[in-house]
């Protein structure tokens, strides 16, 4: 990590502790916010947090690796979590899973090479009466079918790159042969 990046990250965390507090009970909220903004909790970030909260960096790592929403490698901008617990399983989560893999071109536990999508399993999300349930970042989709998977992925894709609203106009002016999705 560049020194300038480190400095930026450190000052960001300092701002966060002003907002969320610098006592130990602010640890999980701080880690959640860092994960949300950067899709990962860098070891350097853990050291800065440890310093500001006056605890050992290992303590921070220990907490960050415990919770499923904090743990793991760098994630994509859109984290797809498909419920694998019994009721969603009974309602056909396997086929939804297969279609998600097809649409995104990755397996569960992986992130697309452009860093946009991560596909993960989740345990029961409390949508048992409306399964299969899929959590995309903080948005929940229920009664997901293999067919709906495509629309959900497209919804995400429409927010970045040439399909993003800010690029839509330029895109429309492109020669037709370039406008192939």
């Amino acid at each position: 990590m560049l020194v300038t990046e480190q400095e930026r990250l450190a000052s960001e965390i300092r701002e966060l502790t002003k907002e969320l507090g610098n006592d130990r009970s602010a640890l999980v909220p701080i880690l959640k916010e860092i994960k949300l903004r950067h899709s990962t909790i860098d070891p350097y970030a853990m050291q800065v947090i440890a310093d500001l909260l006056d605890i050992h960096p290992v303590e921070v790592y220990s907490v960050a690796s415990f919770y499923s929403f904090l743990a793991g490698a760098r994630q994509g901008e859109f984290v797809f979590r498909l419920c694998r617990t019994i009721c969603c399983d009974m309602r056909g989560k396997d086929r939804v899973a297969r279609q998600l893999e097809n649409e995104l071109g990755i397996h569960f536990g992986e992130t697309t090479s452009d860093g946009k999508f991560t596909l993960e399993w989740a345990n029961c999300m409390g949508m048992c009466d409306q399964g299969p349930a899929l959590l995309v970042n903080e948005t929940i989709y229920t009664q997901v079918t293999p067919e709906k998977v495509h629309a959900i992925v497209e919804e995400c894709r429409a927010t970045f790159g040439v399909l993003a609203p800010e690029h839509k106009k330029e895109y429309a002016e492109w020669p037709l042969q370039l406008r192939v999705r």
Binding site: F66, Y67, L70
Partner: peptide, 25 residues
């Protein structure tokens, strides 16, 4: 409101408190 970070065991009351205090659940 305190939002958890994905751990079933935190439904157990003492694990929940550990989590609130910033520890592993």
């Amino acid at each position: 409101i305190f939002v958890g970070a994905g751990a079933y065991v935190c439904g157990e009351e003492t694990a929940l408190i550990e989590s609130l205090e910033g520890y592993r659940g």
